[in-house]
Design a protein around this nucleic acid. Structure first.
Length: 480
RNA sequence: CGGGGUGUGGCGAAGUUUGGUAUCGCGCUUGGUUCGGGACCAAGAGGCCCCGGGUUCGAAUCCCGGCACUCCGACCA
């Protein structure tokens, strides 16, 4: 690996202050700007382009699994929100209310959607009559509002962009399969496109979605050893169906309640990418979602033929399907190097007079700064190879971080010691299933339960906390 | 929601203790020389000192109230 010398002194080093490093990156890579409302951010073109790529890739996975996009209203009447008791209790503390239209006070106040279960339920009750109407596999891309107390760009904002899938099925079995299917879609997307390994599992009772029978989640581990929930998928059983009276006539002419699911990912994924792959020089973007995959930098661009060559290479790479940009501005070469490293562009192409003489150019990988001299005729092929190698290298590095920072413990003292010796990370232990132990471990060690992983292991006989017979393997971590 | 820190041209800061003409670096504009790791010279432009009250002959500076950002906790995608 080429020497990783720090060229940009405007970014706080990760090791000095991880939180500040994160904030520096979102600002200096031009991802966001702050607005005058707390917790509401301007997503700038470069940041939004990442989201558009995420949308495109996920949307095609949703379509491939039979889902259709719809759009629901952004306002929910209070009476509608209140129909499902657990649901309203879960969300009430963080909803924003509209009380006036113009100067008139509204007869009933309207909540700005924090999530759209109730709207989908109301609609499903209207349009589902027969088993022939099922399943309903809907998704919507929109923003939602949750009046958070503590906010951070991408990780926790008061308004955020997301997608929410809402499905209705004839049987519990089908709905459970859907819940699992979509969790897997998320996990595959994270692995294959974001180069980010995740732990799949079920949330504990205390941590599950308001109104759900079961909540599943994918948990990723950031570079500082903190966990980030990257996506969730909920199984509702027929609880919402009963609250909203969503019924269909089955083949035997009997009235049945539907079984439902919902699932979502948010712009938080951008935060996850930053904290999984970024380094002290800035962002490092996985090629699949990078707005610019290859940036072409002409060297000594006033010399005859250089700009023309840069333009020619740009056209060739575009034609080959790469997202490519040529920066022919008057900024110095060194400035451009630093700029595009800050922005996480996966590959940099340098082309100067000496290269042109030799019929070649230079490709430099963002993650390790490795240089490859490439004959012009082999450019497309080598660029493809290097992007693929970079992607798998990002994944392997993130996986290595996750594995190195996953500690198996059998006592709360063991947890404290593991974290103190090795730094934050996932802790896996056995657990009796009682909420009291969840709370106590959090109080004693500082880590909270993340999920009951699908891959259960027999690490010990007894609960890490109370010592009673254990039921589950459980992942714990400090979390965002 | 509790505790700390911050708010001064686009960005980063000095000035605030002890009230008295608004400072510096970077960036920006124009012209020229440069360009393989954040180039250089010259000439310019750019400020409700976060907002609202108050004290004062006079407030970036003192007092009261608010807002935002940020960090550390508690709660949550």
């Amino acid at each position: 690996m080429a020497e990783q010398k720090k060229m940009v002194d405007e970014i706080t080093s990760m090791d000095v202050d991880f939180a500040q490093w994160y904030t520096d990156i979102v600002k200096k890579a031009d991802l966001i700007d702050y607005s005058s409302v707390k917790g509401c951010m301007v997503i700038r073109p470069y940041g939004y382009a990442i989201w558009e790529n995420i949308q495109k890739l996920l949307d095609s996975r949703f379509k491939a699994t039979g889902h259709e996009n719809v759009y629901m209203p952004m306002f929910i009447p209070e009476s509608l929100l209140e129909k499902e008791k657990d649901h309203v209790e879960g969300f009430a503390p963080e909803v924003a209310w509209v009380t006036h239209g113009g100067n008139e006070k509204l007869a009933e106040r309207l909540c700005v959607r924090p999530t759209s279960e109730t709207l989908f339920c109301e609609h499903y009750a209207n349009i589902i009559q027969s088993h022939r109407d099922l399943p309903k596999l809907y998704n919507q891309w929109c923003s939602v509002v949750r009046w958070e107390k503590t906010t951070r760009p991408f990780l926790r904002s008061r308004e955020f962009l997301w997608q929410e899938g809402h499905t209705a099925h004839a049987t519990a079995q089908e709905a459970i399969e859907e819940t699992e299917r979509m969790l897997n879609v998320y996990a595959d997307f994270c692995r294959e496109e974001l180069c980010m390994p995740v732990v799949k599992g079920r949330k504990t009772e205390s941590d599950k979605f308001a109104g759900a029978e079961a909540t599943y989640a994918i948990e990723a581990l950031m570079h500082d050893g903190k966990a980030l929930q990257a996506g969730t998928s909920h199984y509702f059983g027929d609880g919402f169906a009963k609250a909203f009276n969503i019924m269909f006539t089955d083949k035997d002419n009997k009235q049945q309640y539907v079984h439902q699911t919902s699932w979502g990912v948010t712009t938080r994924l951008i935060g996850a990418v930053i904290m999984s792959h970024g380094d002290d020089n800035g962002l490092v973007l996985p090629p699949a979602v990078a707005p610019v995959q290859i940036v072409i930098l002409p060297i000594a661009q006033h010399k005859p033929g250089v700009l023309e060559k840069a333009q020619e290479l740009k056209e060739r790479l575009s034609a080959a399907g790469f997202r490519v940009k040529a920066d022919c501005s008057e900024n110095s070469a060194g400035w451009k190097f630093a700029e595009y490293e800050m922005k996480g562009v996966p590959l940099r192409l340098e082309v100067g007079p000496k290269d042109i003489e030799n019929g070649q150019c230079v490709l430099v990988r963002r993650d390790n700064r490795e240089k490859t001299f490439v004959k012009f005729e082999e450019l497309e092929k080598v660029a493809k190879t290097l992007l693929d190698e970079l992607a798998s290298s990002l994944y392997n590095k993130a996986l290595d971080n996750l594995e190195k920072r996953t500690y198996s413990c059998t006592s709360t003292d063991g947890i404290i010691k593991a974290l103190a010796d090795n730094g934050d990370g996932f802790v896996k232990t056995m657990w009796c299933g009682e909420e009291a132990c969840e709370d106590k471990v959090k109080e004693l060690t500082g880590v909270g339960s993340r999920c009951i992983p699908f891959e259960q292991e027999q690490l010990a006989e007894n609960c890490v906390c109370c010592g009673k017979k254990a039921k589950y393997t459980l992942y714990w971590a400090k979390a965002y």
